[in-house]
């Protein structure tokens, strides 16, 4: 049971970790705001679904589009102006960004949890001794689907390929007439999409509340364990972290899941400094 529910949430963490990887890969920036982008995306969905009253699918599409625009806007307004500055400036800006996003959410929607919205029909399925909600099952499927879509996107589309190129060197890409700025912009937009989808799924299973950002933090260890650079790694890392989280909080209790994930992060750092699925660094000349 713990294993299953861990995997369910893990798929969502993996999805959010994918957003983290998208940004890191293209620009080497650790985006601390990823969890808060998830929060914001989830609330956007709630807004479209409940406040505007759109039908479910339309609300999702609207939220995802807004998530893309939001991510791209963040890049445009802050990180683009820091190109050429030390990395540390960019990373700190993402830290402050998380303050702003959390602040915006509580300014607009308040600090209390919102009324529950079911993104999907609620019923339970029995699998032998286990009881699963269709909610979490659909969430799991969607997360894997979205992740798979992103992996295909990286591998086979022009712009996905360009993103992988940008990760290897900005100057090379510019010499081929590829606008690095545009690619980075799209990367952030997609990171926003990954966060929003994760937010919708997480919100509809755990409820729409400020604490979601904390759960979004789990994406960081997930991404790191996956090697920070590989989409497949992010998903596997997410599943692993989901597993650890649910088993540890199942047996230890006391919300030990999140700290446990970070313990695993630190241990990974000791054993495999660049994660388990990171690119093998090619250093020959």
């Amino acid at each position: 049971m713990l294993v299953i529910s861990g995997m369910m949430n893990g798929a969502i963490y993996g999805l959010v970790a994918l957003g983290f990887v998208l940004v890191y890969k293209a620009s080497a920036v650790l985006n601390f705001a990823q969890g808060y982008m998830l929060l914001f995306g989830a609330y956007l969905f709630w807004f479209f679904r409940v406040t505007v009253g759109l039908p479910l699918v339309l609300a999702m599409i609207a939220a995802v589009a807004a998530g893309f625009a939001g991510g791209a806007l963040i890049e445009r307004l802050t990180l683009r102006r820091l190109i050429g500055q030390p990395l540390i400036s960019m990373v700190t800006v993402t830290i402050f960004l998380s303050l702003v996003l959390e602040g915006l959410v509580s300014m607009i929607w308040g600090t209390y949890p919102l009324q529950h919205v079911a993104a999907f029909p609620e019923s339970t399925i029995r699998l032998g001794k286990m009881v699963l909600t269709t909610q979490s099952l659909i969430a799991f499927g969607l997360a894997l689907l979205a992740a798979g879509a992103l992996i295909v996107f990286f591998r086979f589309t022009r712009i996905g390929l360009a993103m992988r190129g940008v990760a290897e060197g900005h100057q090379i890409m510019q010499s081929m007439g590829i606008s690095v700025r545009r690619i980075l912009n799209v990367s952030w937009g997609l990171a926003g999409v990954a966060a929003t989808v994760g937010g919708i799924l997480l919100g509809s299973t755990l409820g729409f509340q400020l604490g979601m950002s904390h759960i979004g933090l789990l994406a960081i260890p997930a991404a790191f364990i996956g090697g920070l650079e590989s989409p497949e790694g992010a998903i596997l890392g997410g599943l692993l972290i989901g597993l650890i989280e649910s088993i540890v909080s199942g047996y230890v209790g006391n919300a030990a899941g999140v700290p446990a994930a970070f313990v695993v992060l630190i241990l990974t750092m000791l054993v495999r400094p660049y994660g388990f699925f990171g690119l093998e660094r090619i250093e020959r000349v």
Partner: peptide, 15 residues
């Protein structure tokens, strides 16, 4: 672009 395949390198050249 070291981590990409030859064909991917060429495709990016024709971007």
């Amino acid at each position: 672009l070291k981590h990409l395949t030859v064909e991917e390198n060429l495709r990016l050249g024709g971007y």
